[in-house]
């Protein structure tokens, strides 16, 4: 098999992996600040996917253009969820928070099932079968758009946390909750903002994902687990780690699906997760606690 072929598969995996990474970034931000493991993350992402599919199907809007609106919608969902429900769980035991979000996830995924049915739906874009040639690589246009889009949103998020006042306040909150309270920050509001941002990020990742796969409700738990794997592999609370983890998983899935069996590709992801948990529990780019 020529080298070009492998390169193409790897590059495709890398671009898909960037979208995975973006979704995981949302999860990582929520965990890093609110200290809540969002077990409904894939569900939020799939809400984004359905929103994009609806926009494309009924209004003919490209998922890339729908992304900002979907982001706003999911921001509202996330903000409301944190404000109305999760904030009162901040000091509760881990397993209670986890069970709460398991419940939320069940409601969302089955709500989607009732609303849209179990069958796959897709967003039609005019460039669905186009390809872009870069050197030896021949890449699907959809993958390039999705990957570049994910990178751009990740960059924006990074800049938000570095430069904006709110972003800095949120970081202060994650470093030291008590300290943040003492200097007069409204921690509950910042948590809600953070959860909103994380949900919006998942929503955008969902929009980009519709360029790559068809959507069905059952994708939600898969994406939740995938995001977990990526975040743990990359390192909790590390934004670069989430992207790196996404790319790693994306490439390894593409390679495994191509070299062995497509149905066995996620076995590698789980295998990688188990290895990382055991050998480097703080993740590849995470700091030791």
């Amino acid at each position: 098999m020529p080298l070009d072929f492998y390169l193409n598969v790897a590059a495709g995996g890398l671009l898909t992996g960037l979208v995975y990474g973006l979704a995981a970034l949302g999860l990582s931000v929520i965990f890093g600040v609110v200290r809540i493991v969002n077990f409904a993350h894939g569900e939020l992402m799939v809400i984004g996917m359905y929103a994009a599919v609806l926009a494309a199907g009924s209004l003919g809007i490209d998922p890339l253009l729908a992304a900002p609106v979907v982001a706003a919608l999911l921001f509202a969902v996330g903000y409301g969820l944190q404000r109305g429900l999760i904030n009162r769980f901040i000091d509760r035991p881990d397993h209670m928070q986890f069970i709460l979000l398991v419940g939320v996830a069940m409601v969302i995924v089955n709500g989607l099932l009732i609303a849209f049915g179990p069958d796959s739906q897709s967003a039609q874009v005019p460039y669905a079968f186009d390809a872009i040639e870069i050197g030896p690589l021949l890449l699907d246009t959809t993958k390039v758009y999705a990957g570049v889009g994910a990178l751009a949103v990740a960059a924006l998020l990074f800049l938000f946390f570095r430069l904006s006042l709110t972003g800095k306040a949120i970081r202060a909150c994650s470093d030291n909750q008590l300290g943040a309270r003492v200097v007069g920050l409204n921690v509950e509001r910042l948590y809600a903002l953070t959860f909103g941002l994380g949900a919006a990020t998942a929503g955008i990742a969902g929009c980009l994902m519709t360029l790559l796969v068809d959507v069905r409700p059952q994708l939600a738990p898969e994406y939740t687990l995938l995001s977990f794997i990526i975040v743990i592999v990359g390192g909790l609370g590390s934004m670069g780690g989430a992207l790196l983890g996404g790319v790693l998983i994306g490439i390894s899935e593409a390679m495994a699906g191509f070299l062995i069996l497509p149905s066995m590709k996620s076995m590698f992801s789980y295998g990688l997760l188990i290895l990382v948990l055991l050998l480097r529990p703080q993740g590849l780019l995470g700091k030791r606690p």
């Binding site: 398991v102 419940g103 089955n110």
Partner: peptide, 18 residues
């Protein structure tokens, strides 16, 4: 509504932990 039972379970979980 094929998922109604699961929705009920999910709501029950949320209600109980809250």
């Amino acid at each position: 509504m094929p998922g109604i039972k699961q929705i009920f379970y999910g709501l029950a979980l949320v209600a109980i932990v809250v």
